[in-house]
């Protein structure tokens, strides 16, 4: 997997070549609020911001679908509802039911969570059928499948992408935002390579500024899930006035650096940490920085 690590500086350099207008960047953003405690006023504000900035969609929990659809009626902003969220451990039938209800209440896009446990069991038929159930229930609406890449090795990420594509979904997405990792260059790059150019890749989790967003686009994402949409768009106004894309040291962008013993399976944690042993950039891995 040395080549994956070597890809980080390459992608970091490619970020400088991304030419994207603020309007185009806004249209890649699913403006997200998936909090367990944000009340109505907060959801209203989310919709107002999405309208003001012309984001692609608002991404919300199911109980807010109808509310947001009403708020956004007559605008170009879609409603994106999560299903089987955030653990992906509900049954295919339950996921299908949630999907139908969300579509019925005005959702145009569904972000569902893959059953990672069944994937770890190598029960790939179950995983495929689980995704298919959502795709069929969505009736042609866009379906994105969250892999939760923080629980997966690089090889597993590639394998999961292929299953999702076979199941007829439209996008693979890396993270719920509640898992161990946010979006990282290697994961998004692997996902893009696995699904090919004609499929969607959504990067989500920890994308807090325009540099992060551009990195993900350079790695292959064509959709960004973030709760920092306003900040990204506002900070992007600075981008044109100077060269902000000074290269970051590879370790800061690498999932191995972010691996956490407390939040991921022990075997996966060890897998990521072992990548550092032969990494060509290991001398940069100074933790106090």
């Amino acid at each position: 997997m040395t080549s994956i690590m070597e890809s980080i500086p390459k992608i970091e350099r490619r970020t400088k070549e991304i030419k994207i207008s603020p309007e185009e960047l806004a249209k890649t953003i699913d403006h997200t609020k998936l909090s367990p405690y944000k009340p109505t006023g907060s959801m209203k504000k989310l919709c107002e911001e999405a309208k003001a900035y012309h984001f692609h969609s608002v991404c919300v929990n199911p109980c807010w679908t109808r509310f947001c659809a009403n708020e956004l009626k007559g605008t170009d902003v879609k409603v994106d509802t999560v299903v089987g969220f955030p653990l992906g451990q509900t049954t295919p039938e339950e996921k299908a039911f949630e999907t139908k209800q969300a579509i019925g209440e005005g959702a145009s896009e569904i972000d569902t969570v893959m059953n990672v446990a069944k994937f770890k069991d190598k029960d790939y038929d179950f995983v495929r059928d689980d995704v298919k159930a959502v795709v069929e229930a969505a009736g042609g609406k866009t379906v994105k499948v969250i892999l939760e890449t923080g629980y997966l090795t690089y090889e597993e990420i590639s394998g999961a992408c292929k299953i999702v594509k076979e199941a007829g979904a439209d996008f693979v997405k890396n993270s719920t935002g509640f898992g161990p990792f946010g979006a990282t260059i290697p994961h998004i790059l692997l996902m893009r390579e696995a699904v090919g150019g004609d499929f969607g890749v959504k990067a989500a989790g920890g994308i807090n500024n325009f540099r992060d967003a551009l990195r993900m686009i350079a790695a292959g994402a064509n959709r960004i899930g973030t709760s920092a949409g306003v900040k990204i768009m506002d900070s992007y106004r600075w981008a044109r006035h100077s060269d902000w894309l000074i290269e970051e040291i590879p370790c800061r962008l690498c999932p191995s650096r972010k691996a956490s013993f407390t939040s991921m399976p022990k075997s996966v944690f060890q897998y990521y940490k072992m990548q550092c042993v032969n990494c060509p950039y290991r001398e940069y891995n100074r933790f106090y920085e």
């Binding site: 807090n208 100077s242 902000w244």
Partner: peptide
């Protein structure tokens, strides 16, 4: 702002090269 707080975008605080244009801005 950029070197510690990440505003408007985070920059590697230990890196010297490339900073001059941002300081000027």
């Amino acid at each position: 702002g950029p070197e510690v707080l990440g505003v408007p975008a985070p920059l590697d605080r230990f890196r010297a090269g490339g900073k001059a244009k941002i300081v000027k801005l």
